[in-house]
């Protein structure tokens, strides 16, 4: 069979898989971003009980392999009658995991802000919410670009792990093609490799562009 025909025939399947991969990636990152920011602020501003709880959460999700989390949230929960789809289980497991990673990116960023500025706006009469909104957040997000780019790439790549619990993302679609055409593993997986590369490269380029756009003279040089 001609290689070109295999590729052309495979395009619809790969596209379907790509859409699922992008959905997974977007869901992991979005859940991780919202929860990660919340955890970061809770860790910095929360009372003892809250900080200990957050630290525990982060430790758990940082210390368990992604694959184990996926199995726990899909097969493990399934055993107790929580019959959620493989997609939903992936989003919960990997989203929480990403939240643990992202929280540490943001916590580090929040803690690198020169505290005198926060005291200064406190002295202007700003309440805690305003201090976070107008000083802490804009600066913390600027500090976060580089480490957050890593996290973005990691999450996109880790969507492929969801293959293991049966999500029909791009790897699984690729596997179907390989099985159906009795071979062509190198060809198909190279195409998939380039697709991942494209997504991560594009995202990192976009983040870099945004970072430069928001650049402030001398900012970050303490």
């Amino acid at each position: 069979m001609d290689k070109l025909i295999i590729i052309v025939n495979g395009i619809p399947l790969l596209l379907e898989g790509l859409i699922v991969t992008l959905e997974l990636g977007a869901a992991f990152i979005a859940l991780g971003l919202a929860l990660g920011l919340a955890i970061a602020f809770a860790q910095v501003y929360g009372n003892r009980f809250i900080t200990i709880f957050c630290a525990g959460f982060v430790q758990v999700f940082l210390g368990i392999p992604a694959m184990v989390l996926l199995f726990l949230f899909y097969f493990g929960l399934g055993e107790f009658g929580f019959n959620i789809s493989a997609f939903a289980a992936s989003v919960i497991a990997m989203g929480l995991r990403s939240a643990a990673y992202q929280s540490q990116v943001f916590r580090g960023a929040i803690q690198s802000i020169r505290s005198g500025q926060i005291t200064a706006v406190k002295a202007l009469g700003m309440n805690l919410f305003q201090r976070i909104r107008y000083v802490v957040l804009p600066q913390a997000l600027r500090y976060s670009f580089a480490p957050w780019s890593n996290e973005y790439a990691a999450q996109i790549k880790d969507t492929s792990l969801c293959y293991a619990i049966g999500v029909t993302e791009i790897m699984r679609e690729g596997r179907y093609i390989v099985v159906q055409t009795f071979g062509n593993a190198m060809l198909i997986y190279i195409i998939i490799a380039f697709i991942y590369l494209g997504i991560t490269y594009f995202g990192i380029w976009l983040l870099r562009y945004w970072e430069i756009k928001l650049r402030v003279p001398g900012f970050g040089i303490n």
Binding site: R114, Q117, Y134, Q139, V216
Partner: peptide, 14 residues
């Protein structure tokens, strides 16, 4: 309603 001027200026850097 109380101005405060700090030793290290404490301007908002961004």
């Amino acid at each position: 309603s109380i101005g405060f001027v700090f030793q290290n200026f404490n301007l908002i850097t961004h």
